[in-house]
Write a protein that binds this DNA or RNA. Structure first.
Length: 462
RNA sequence: GACCCCAUCGUCUAGUGGCCUAGGACAUCGGCCUUUCACGCCGAAAACACGGGUUCGAGUCCCGUUGGGGUCGCCA
């Protein structure tokens, strides 16, 4: 038996779940499922000051909405603080870490000096071999990792390939803060180990962290997980995605009227590909997603494409789901239900987002008498009204009411009057909707129902 | 600044040395369909960043340039 694949999505709860995070979660989930493994969620809340309950809820709810809920209860990193600190102490005892008494000012100075000398601004290891007895009074020390200084580290990244970094580029990172709390770098390593994470799939911005983390794994005698650093998502103009710039929370996409499966499909296609496949189900994605074919370069967010994928999924919405969506957004009078049911195909065909869908559905929700726009009425002549009146007699005499029958009768009516279909269609459209453009009048008439059509025409001509 | 990463149509991408006269999707433009609006269908325009190698042959391999991105916290 080989070890099961375990992945994790590890956001810090300092804000909402954004698209980049959602895609990272997706990739982790896809990969785990593909190998019949586990997908876990770990909330990285070791920074109390910046973490919030609201952010945690936003992340969990966002994942839930997308259908990316983890296979187990989320792990809260803050619950493992004692364990992390204990590991740091162990390193300290083994001489693999040391106490550093540098003040914040001292560190800042060090950085500025390095920058001024055009060197990499890193900690110079001044307390590496100094006796703690020489410590200045009143300074509580941090614990720093005694990082290897010679040689290099080789990372075989699943996405980026082989990357080599000289150890001298990495400085002695802080493991334990002056108040005794563990830093991110320590916590991640310990938790990834304890949770038996086999594959860390995360944003590109963590690439250099991987080297520091591997150092720690090595010092602890643990074997590091596999790493896959996926490129970041940029805003549509190529700039970095930020809160001020295009980075909306996942719930914003929900409010904008995107379907979760559409967003997922779009996100999966951003940076990953399976040949020329564009629209595919989650199940298909899972069967295809084995960690290969992930792009190395950053991708831009493109709402046009999202819209088009969303439109595709909207076409597959059934009536029950449609009603759930609609009633969440609008008051639906009982008399409208049958009309909506009949008019659904036309509604779905014409909407790229749920918001559009809801707006378009309004035509079936409205109560008589309709309001006609000035532009509409300007196009209506006395003859038009006479024609409508006559058409209503035709409708009234109809035995039955389906789209085909309606179409045939309207066409025949126009033919008999010796006028073009458009001459009937235009006023009828205005009579039924109040607007100059709408769906097919045949479709509309059918969906509205005979009684309502007759009533609306009557409103219109009188 | 140092280190690391990246680079195919406007955008997302296919491409793993000959199948590439570079394919698909979105967007754009034109046409068809047609009662308007959509949908759908057909078609067009549109890219290998640049310069050197390697090779019989390079979008594909190597080097450099340029451009973009990331990291360099007692944040994660």
């Amino acid at each position: 038996m080989t070890k099961p694949i375990i992945t994790r999505f590890a956001p810090s709860p300092t804000g909402y779940l954004h698209v980049g995070g959602a895609r990272t979660a997706l990739f982790n989930m896809l990969f785990a499922r593909h190998f019949d493994g586990l997908f876990l969620l770990r909330i990285e809340d070791t920074d109390h000051k910046r973490s919030s309950r609201e952010a945690i809820d936003a992340i969990v709810d966002g994942l839930d909405w997308l259908g990316l809920s983890p296979d187990k209860k989320p792990v809260f990193q803050s619950m493992n603080l004692a364990r992390h600190a204990q590991i740091a102490k162990k390193l300290l005892n083994e001489g693999k870490a040391y106490l550093c008494f540098c003040s914040a000012e001292e560190l800042a100075e060090m950085r500025e000096k390095a920058l001024a000398e055009k060197r990499s601004p890193k900690y110079d290891g001044r307390w590496r071999n100094r006796d703690p007895k020489n410590a200045p009074a009143g300074v509580s020390p941090v614990v720093r990792f005694k990082a290897p200084q010679d040689g290099h580290l080789l990372l075989n990244d699943l996405v980026q390939g082989e990357i080599r970094v000289a150890n001298e580029e990495l400085d002695d990172m802080v493991l334990l803060r002056a108040d005794g709390s563990p830093t991110y770098m320590l916590s991640v390593v310990v938790d990834d180990h304890d949770m038996q994470i086999t594959h860390v799939i995360r944003g590109d911005d963590h690439l250099t962290n991987a080297f520091r983390q591997i150092m720690l794994f090595n010092a602890l005698g643990w074997s590091p997980p596999n790493y896959a650093h996926i490129p970041l998502i940029h805003a549509s103009d190529g700039n970095k995605l930020s809160k001020r710039h295009g980075a909306l929370g996942i719930e914003a996409y929900k409010d904008l009227g995107y379907l979760p499966e559409a967003l997922l499909n779009y996100l999966a296609r951003l940076g990953w590909s399976h040949g020329d496949d564009e629209v595919f189900s989650l199940t298909e994605a899972i069967s295809w997603f084995d960690g290969s074919n992930i792009n190395k370069s950053a991708a831009r967010l493109d709402l046009n494409k999202l819209n088009s994928i969303n439109a595709h999924y909207i076409k597959n919405i059934n009536f029950d789901r449609f009603m759930r969506i609609l009633t969440q957004r609008k008051e639906v009078p009982p008399h409208a239900i049958d009309r909506l049911n009949r008019g659904l195909p036309g509604l779905l065909n014409r909407s790229k987002t749920l918001n559009e869908l809801t707006e378009k559905a309004a035509i079936y929700l409205e109560n008589r008498p309709l309001k006609y726009t000035k532009e509409s009425l300007a196009l209506v002549s006395v003859e038009d009204k006479i024609n409508m009146k006559e058409l209503s007699f035709v409708f009234n005499g109809l035995d039955g009411w389906d789209q085909k029958m309606i179409e045939e009768n309207i066409r025949y009516f126009a033919e008999r009057k010796g006028i073009k279909l458009g001459e009937i269609a235009r006023p009828l459209r205005i009579a039924l909707t109040g607007f100059t453009s709408s769906f097919s009048i045949f479709e509309l008439s059918f969906a509205l129902g005979k009684k309502e059509v007759l009533a609306r025409i009557n409103d219109f001509v009188t």
